[in-house]
């Protein structure tokens, strides 16, 4: 397996001038290609901060983050934008589609930023909408879609650029249980069939149950990692 995310000793502190609060404290994280990992923990445990640093949206105070072998903590703001465009897919909590573009245009937009040819774009868009089972909603604007449908389009958009992995920050937080289940089905299917790496933060038990690896953060520290536990169990079994 290939290492996609490799974070070493990553820390992030807020309120440095008053009382320092460790949002993320000496975190080591290693994610391989094809993993379907949930980052769980109570509110304020540092899930989003850690995801932001892995996604190159924020910089750690100390530590390094490697994505597919590239140390992104050393990249400039402009280099990070370019890096994110080519390597990372994002799914945000509150859908965050561009409201004035249709579902199809939202998905196509990322490929346009990457200067992908029209014929390839068309093919990819068609394929993605089939995968998210929304072929009939391609030309509809986000306001006319349900929350679940919007989040599925967001997943399609995240995948449009063929990223190294997809970061999803509480993707089901604003969805009803049926929509959340549908979204998870699609994400699981993409992970199983296309080996797309997903790392998502959540406190939704339904999501946690579907994850193959669960990492628990409390007060900015990793307190448990199911991968580590299973490795220990595997060793014990041997």
């Amino acid at each position: 397996m290939n290492t996609v995310i490799d974070a070493h000793d990553v820390s992030k502190t807020y309120n440095l001038e008053t009382i320092p609060v460790y949002a993320v404290n000496n975190v080591h994280l290693h994610i391989e290609k094809g993993e379907f990992t949930a980052l769980v923990g109570p509110s304020g445990s540092g899930k989003t901060t850690l995801l932001n640093m892995i996604g190159g949206l924020d910089k750690p105070d100390t530590g390094t983050v490697y994505i597919d072998g590239v140390e992104i903590t050393k990249l400039s703001a402009n280099q990070l934008i370019e890096f994110r465009l080519k390597n990372i897919g994002f799914v945000f909590q509150s859908f965050n589609l561009i409201p004035v573009l249709t579902a199809r245009e939202n998905v196509e937009f990322i490929m346009l930023l990457q200067n992908v040819k029209k014929s390839i774009r068309d093919e990819r868009v068609k394929q993605l909408f089939t995968q998210i089972e929304m072929d009939d909603k391609m030309n509809v604007r986000p306001a006319q879609l349900s929350g679940g449908q919007q989040q599925r389009v967001a997943v399609a958009r995240a995948l449009a650029s063929k990223p190294k992995f997809v970061l999803a920050d509480e993707p089901t937080a604003n969805l009803d249980s049926k929509s959340a289940s549908n979204l998870l089905d699609i994400m699981t299917k993409l992970n199983n069939e296309e080996h797309i790496t997903f790392l998502f933060s959540t406190h939704d038990q339904r999501v946690i149950d579907r994850a193959r690896r669960v990492i628990t953060l409390v007060d900015g520290r990793i307190v448990s990692d199911s991968a580590a536990v299973s490795t220990k169990h595997e060793k014990a079994d041997v």
């Binding site: 934008i81 465009l85 080519k86 994002f90 945000f92 965050n96 561009i98 958009r157």
Partner: peptide, 16 residues
């Protein structure tokens, strides 16, 4: 603000 932040997050550079 949020939408523009999202565009930057997705990889839309400053020139664009």
């Amino acid at each position: 603000t949020r939408e523009i932040g999202m565009l930057v997050a997705l990889g839309m550079n400053r020139l664009k």
